[in-house]
Design a protein around this nucleic acid. Structure first.
Lengths: 342, 342
DNA sequence: ATTAGCACTCTACTAAAGAGAGTGCTAATA
DNA sequence: TATTAGCACTCTCTTTAGTAGAGTGCTAAT
């Protein structure tokens, strides 16, 4: 592999580039990170590191910048891991008390905290409806012509929709429908409920009934939850402070990606490993973010993986810092959610 | 006021500036908008218009750009009103069918349509919970230790929260609490329900009861809905296409404003008039958007004002186009909402 | 009242020059 | 043999000067 001095130099270069966003020269390293050797020696080592693929040179007379391979090595071997300060932990713990009124706000505020602490774009994927379990459905009366159909999950999440009651249908009938559906679906995980199962219910229980059709429709809708409100974004504005987005075109490109919820979902869905996972630049399969790094982690409620927290930034992102923040979050978000009512 | 020719010239200048974003010179006007007079005459008129405050000159040898006063006169008197094309109306009507699954999505998609059609930032203010009427509350069973408290409004909107059931409380007791609250609050508008009223209930009905306290807490929370999910934004990315935001600092400024939900709410709350209302540049009280124009309209459900639709853009915004889009929307959003289940 | 003509002003663009940062190589040094 | 001082070289970035272009305002003629 790399000898000790090369490692030290590589680490110094990356640390410096992460904090300055400027190509790093040999003199800077020799001076700022007192290596005990002169700039010329460092130059030789840098030339080696470039041949080995850890560094790149924007042009002949510039300093070096880390390559994706360089960052990868940095993340895996060199980086000194940091952990959150007392102060930051307090910030997080107190944050929710003052801001949160309902569950969705936990996600929104988590995204905000993440982007605050990391100074980058954050993403929080809320638990997927489809991973929770059908508990029961029920009709709540509204007026003569309308009722609210609610579907309750075992986690206490509730999906609701106003439904027009067809002429001549009475509340007891509605309840009969609900009972029929409940007896069939109770305890099933949502992603196990297939259309075929719903068709069975229709055929077996109440073969022909306009409202029943509507009910099933709504159930189907509940089963395919919109991606939209599953992903919470934070810090899109802060991004513009990063020098890599000094160019409006760049910024526009990223914002466009962020607007494509579907794409975001894919980016995050693609990783299933445990712990904090780092994807650097071109390691990313998705075009549009190939000059960015994604750092993500899953979080659990009751031991079950339910969602993700992630931070997105330039490859020059402060890996150490971001990873420590995400590490904290993915460990604690489960408790926080339970505390605030999932 | 202004004689006919001055009007014609002013209109031509503003039309041109709106579409090009470049200062307009006398030659351009004479050529493109064949006025029947030479550039020199136009120059004289332009000089007059500048003295009168309708035009400004970025520097001596540039063309003229409209001032806020110029735009105001343009909007009030000059502008040729446009209306939506068949095609656009169809686009709108079909849009919701394919995209909308739940009520919140109506707002989100409305924002999207608005920004699509106007190529600017759009805002949609969802109906305020506090303006609707308390219908009833109810506890839905979840498990031994938890229940879901739901509050239903006359519009069919539903607020819900998971509540821990204190030791030893049974379902019938919960229902008794609900009944007590319902008998007191049913039919009241949410913003009429004061803490004092809630205190009364506590004192009169069930004087001491941990769960009851929690219930009331939750009700109080429901009464102060977060601003956050009341305002839906669209087209923040498109904004970066406007030449006025070629500068990243400008873009950052605006994005920062857009992140302050509270401020946005104020901006929109400040207008209560009927129809489509235009606020141009410095007419705006709020710093941060004083080089922008806001065009907004209220919409109604069942004849009652419930929310707003608005478009935000540079003072150079296509007033005519935007106003026609908003006019259409504020007339039809009510129906659309009813159709999709408010 | 309008307009042609012209001098004047200001910006935006281009090219040239110079400063600065950093490299790579060579030869000297420990 | 590893390190380093020295130096020529390369490339970018900034500054400067000059020029083209667009547009104005004024005056005198129509």
């Amino acid at each position: 592999m790399l000898d000790e001095r090369k490692c030290k130099i590589l680490q110094a270069i990356i640390d410096d580039y992460i904090s300055t966003a400027e190509p790093v020269g040999s003199r800077t390293i020799a001076r700022k990170y007192n290596m005990g050797v002169g700039p010329a020696t460092i130059r030789n080592e840098m030339a080696d590191l470039e041949v080995l693929g850890y560094l790149e040179q924007p042009h002949t007379s510039a300093g070096r910048i880390p390559s994706a391979k360089g960052y990868r090595f940095y993340v895996d071997c060199l980086m000194s891991p940091s952990s959150l300060s007392e102060q930051e932990i307090n910030l997080i713990n107190n944050w929710y008390h003052t801001k949160v009124r309902r569950i969705e706000e936990v996600f929104q505020e988590t995204a905000k905290i993440l982007s605050r602490l990391t100074r980058n774009i954050s993403l929080v994927v809320a638990p997927q409806f489809s991973q929770s379990t059908f508990k029961y459905m029920q009709f709540l009366p509204l007026d003569e012509t309308r009722a609210i159909l609610v579907v309750v999950t075992d986690t206490g999440y509730l999906e609701n929709k106003v439904i027009a009651i067809p002429e001549g249908i009475t509340m007891p009938e509605l309840q009969r429908i609900a009972a029929a559906v409940n007896s069939r679906l109770a305890g099933l995980q949502f992603n196990q409920i297939k259309s075929s199962l719903i068709r069975d219910i229709r055929n077996d229980v109440i073969p022909d009934h306009a409202l029943f059709e509507k009910t099933l429709d709504m159930l189907r809708q509940a089963l395919t939850p919109s991606q939209r409100d599953r992903i919470y974004l934070g810090g899109t504005t802060q991004m513009l402070n990063q020098p890599e987005f000094r160019d409006v075109e760049k910024a526009k490109g990223l914002l466009t990606v962020l607007e494509e919820e579907k794409l975001l979902a894919d980016i995050l869905e693609s990783q299933e490993a445990n712990g904090v996972v780092v994807t650097i630049g071109q390691e990313n399969k998705f075009s549009g973010i190939q000059d960015l790094s994604v750092i993500q982690a899953t979080y659990r409620v009751d031991g079950q993986v339910v969602g993700k927290v992630a931070v997105l930034g330039p490859t020059r992102i402060e890996y150490s810092k971001v990873m420590s923040v995400l590490d904290f979050m993915h460990r604690h978000l489960g408790e926080i959610l339970k505390k605030y009512g999932v």
